[in-house]
Design a protein around this nucleic acid. Sequence first.
DNA 1: TTTTTTGTTGATTGACGAGTCAATAAACTT
DNA 2: AAGTTTATTGACTCGTCAATCAACAAAAAA
Lengths: 193, 193
Amino acid sequence: MPKLGMEPIRKEALVKATIVEIGRTGSLDVTVSQIAKRAGMSSALAHHYFGSKEEMFLAAMRHVMTIYGAEVRGALCLAQTPMERVEAVLAASFSPANFRREAIGAWLNFWVLAQSAPQARRLLAVYQRRLRSNLLAGLRPLAGSRAESVAAGLGALIDGLYLREVLKSGPPDRTAAVGMAMDYLRAQVRLVG
Amino acid sequence: MPKLGMEPIRKEALVKATIVEIGRTGSLDVTVSQIAKRAGMSSALAHHYFGSKEEMFLAAMRHVMTIYGAEVRGALCLAQTPMERVEAVLAASFSPANFRREAIGAWLNFWVLAQSAPQARRLLAVYQRRLRSNLLAGLRPLAGSRAESVAAGLGALIDGLYLREVLKSGPPDRTAAVGMAMDYLRAQVRLVG
DNA sequence: TTTTTTGTTGATTGACGAGTCAATAAACTT
DNA sequence: AAGTTTATTGACTCGTCAATCAACAAAAAA
């Protein structure tokens, strides 16, 4: 019963299943069979489309980052003032799509992967650069020469808030996270203006 | 040629080797054989003393946290003012013993482990509580009712700075990390005093 | 209609690794 | 001296899993 044009559908299903499984087990120790099963196919087919488990992981990572990037762009085009720009980035960073258990768990594991897989490292570096430059655009008018340092701090704080969510039980509290980051932002900016 | 009283020596060697190997490979995918080899013994002996790989990981985690705890206590007993107390905690958090590649890599992986191993989760929770209360002791006189929130922010920032170090190349920059945290602290405290 | 391309899987291979065991040996105990 | 405890390892078991293969099915192209 092979319908044609399955490739993109299967690949997408696998990518999503990968994220779910990594998020669910909280580790990269997920078997291709697990992922394939959740995506509703045989493990052989998963290999057929992706070639290797590592490719699957990288595709999943790209997917998470693509969603993130899209949300940032979306929020950013509504922003008028510099402050709004920064707020937009924060809102996107803690959006429901990104700041949820599965994604957070996946994100943490990508960090681990980045330590041994150069490809993953590169992807994460791209994310960091993008975050930095997005923040910087809004921060320069607000914080002047301290913009660089504030952006670095804010970036680290965002990552830290993700990390802390890992140990919490219950659903992630976006409002609290955004609040914490905004708090930092306001405190740092007040010193200049 | 069995000398007696080897147990503590072997165990310590294994714990240190575990940290080194996890830090070196950047993942929990280290074989017991690798660890045992680095510690200068057979894998069978490693199993003899620890029973399982998981026990080895937990012992390594306890070790890292013990060092951290000792450094905090050491720095804390020299502190006179509240501000000095907070500074002491920060200094310990980014001390050469803790803020080095191996330990950082190990730390990150413990976080991952905490997602699936309840024991590890508990250990990490202990660390967080201790950090929180240490910070709070210094912060309450400085930040009053905002102390809780500042402590949470500082805690997240510290973890975030660790996380960011993972992707950097070259040796960790303690001074920069402490500076960033102090920066946050000063900004938050200024709003009160 | 034959052939090729695309989709799909059950079965298999081959490697690797955690944990066990039997055996050996040195030290302590009685 | 005989027995017990501690140290130590090579060899082995048993399971798991990534990756491959052979085979089958259906659509598209020839």
